[in-house]
Amino acid sequence: MTHSRHINTNHQGSASLPDPVGIGLRGPHYHDIYDQKPAIGWLEVHPENYFGGGIHRHFLEKLRADYEISFHAVGISLGSAHGIDQNHLQKIKELIDIFSPFQLSDHASWSASGNAHLNDLLPLPYTHETLNLLCDNISRVQDFFKRSILVENPSTYMAYADNDMEEYDLMNALAAQTGCGILLDCNNIFVQAHNHGFDPFHYISNINAAAVGELHLAGHSERDLGARTILIDTHSKPVKQDVWDLYRHALEHLGHIPTLIEWDADIPPLQTLLDEADKARIIMQQSIIKQSA
């Protein structure tokens, strides 16, 4: 594996990465990644997929020897008003102790209500009540893990009428009040901008650059609803050109942040992800050259 340079993440607690671009590690690619050892800076996993043993744990242990790993949780439910599942945190903690991920993240959304886990990233109103709840839950998680986490901006398909603040204000406030970092998903911003009618470039320009520890890129799908089209964050397609343009803007505004290519459904051959990663790497190199000129 060859790596051209080291780029530091700019959020506290982050490690030095050999390459700024990573890809999501998913089951269909286990053998290919293990056999080919592609030149990728890091691999992202959902820790929930590794709570058990067998083939998933086997390959994660093998690949950890060659790659830095990030944990991107999808089940903590930071925005749940019913509290955080301590057992879930304990299982993630056990994996952290084994795999030492350089980054740990989840979403500014909720999934669990009462005894039910809805297995989706559901929207929150952007109110002071929500801010306080998220801060409490994030602090509790960080205290439990004894490390800071990153919190990702979600994709949403409905908006609350009486928000007290914009989403970027909420994200900045979470970082300021809890010490967490921001995981900024460019595709989610684009999807929401389309669905709710705002300027995605304005959103990024209002994010506190010092708090951002990771960027995400993914593909989305379109769903026709009468005369309108809603964008759905499916992670099932290549990154759209509009999102690449937004990524370029994010790099210029935020700096050269470690970037992940996500692909979770209709998973293509590994080479397709590597090609997307190359594209992100080229855009980042162009941005570095432009800023140093």
């Binding site: 297995n119 989706d120 409905m158 009468g226 759905i232």
Partner: peptide, 29 residues
């Protein structure tokens, strides 16, 4: 209902996206 912004896409249509994601996702699992 009043919690959510209303426009030319009905609230039921917007909820149906989440319903499809949740029920469809669990069905696939």
């Amino acid at each position: 209902k009043a919690l959510y912004k209303q426009d030319d896409i009905t609230l039921d249509q917007r909820f149906s996206i989440y319903r499809d994601n949740i029920i469809g996702g669990l069905s696939a699992i």
